[in-house]
Computed example of a mutant assay.
Amino acid sequence: MQRQLKKTYKFAFKTALYITIFLTLLMSVFLYKFYAVDWIQIVFIALTCYVSSFIIIQYRVEQFIYKRVKKIYDDLTLLESSSLRKNRITTDMATLTEEIDKYAKDRKLEIETLKVREEYRKEFLGNVSHELKTPLFTVQGYILTLLDGAIKDKAVRDKYLNNANKGVERLIYIVKDLDMITKLEIGDLRLNIETFDIVELVQSVFELFEMKASKKQISLTFDLDYKNPIYVKADKERIQQVLTNLIVNSIKYGRSQGTTEVSIENLIKNKVIVRVTDNGEGIAKQHIPRLFERFYRVDKSGSRKVGGSGLGLAIVKHIIEAHDEKIYVESELEVGSEFSFTLEKTE
């Protein structure tokens, strides 16, 4: 590390001046009393004393401060301060204070971020464990019951095997979703971009879940009659998955005799925004920032009743972001929710 001197020499200037004044006065009295000296000699002595004092003081002070500041840099380097390693050592107190303050703030932010990540990791592992062990224990219970003799009863055997099969299907569903979201997060899932009619795609999703919605007496509708197609540029299969997740969620958490409405609006010249709105349970404000986290559930107790892997919204978010688009959510408890996302429009 190279040495950088202070920008100001005020300390050395003033200290050398004080020493010079003191020594000049002392020596002038002494020389005047014992030797015949003129004022030119006194000025020369004063200048010599001043220059010598300045150089010695400046050198010693810089050495003194530099050694201690270097130790601070070395200590901070042990804490992996890459930003400080790149800079020259400065003995200017203002600059040093600024650098140390910035270092402290960066480290504090890093520590807080690590704490948040650690909490998220613990919660995520707990959720994964819970989501997997529930169907595993269910399947294990049915199989053990059959092995204990229930397999001899044909009716019980068929029932338990069907239930065990449902548990295995749920495990497969969760693992597939986990595999997809992992690929999305690392950018390993390639998008097949094509041009298609988003109105037609929404209509096809409505048809898929028409029966599911009718069981809860929920109407699946557009906000208006779209007579002309609206063409967008995206991965049709993935956008269908996004619409499926959002519409299925609106049915799951919707009110009986409620409505799930889809609207498609022009946002800017080459963008449309697709809105999925319902008048269901709604979501409390404190949950909204975490809605798109993996396995995050608003209702910890009742959410299992409606099924799902707990990964749907996380997958939705990653698919939309993989298209370099945005997803938004607005919700009010006991009023309803609106999920919306943008897509690139084509002529």
Rank of each mutant, 00 (worst) to 15 (best):
G149Y: 06
N162V: 06
D177S: 15
V175M: 15
L76N: 08
L178A: 07
N163R: 10
G126I: 01
K86H: 07
S83H: 13
L178Y: 09
E123I: 09
L114G: 01
E119C: 02
L79Y: 06
K176L: 14
L79F: 08
T134V: 13
G149T: 04
G149R: 05
K159R: 12
L76E: 03
I151T: 04
P135D: 03
D75Q: 10
E98K: 15
T134Q: 07
T145F: 14
V139C: 01
E110T: 09
I72Y: 00
Y173R: 14
E98I: 07
G167R: 02
R88D: 03
A104N: 08
T95P: 00
L109W: 08
T134I: 12
I172N: 14
K102C: 06
T134K: 13
Y142D: 05
T97N: 10
D75M: 07
Y160K: 07
T97A: 12
P135T: 03
T77I: 06
R85F: 04
L161R: 03
A94Y: 02
R85H: 04
I174V: 14
I111G: 02
L136A: 05
V168D: 05
D148F: 13
E123Q: 15
R121P: 02
D75A: 06
K133Q: 11
K71N: 10
S83L: 08
E99L: 15
V156S: 11
D106T: 01
D148T: 13
K86P: 00
T90G: 00
I172F: 15
L78S: 05
L114F: 05
F124Q: 05
L114W: 01
K176H: 14
D153P: 01
E123M: 14
D106I: 00
E118G: 11
L136D: 01
L96V: 01
R88K: 08
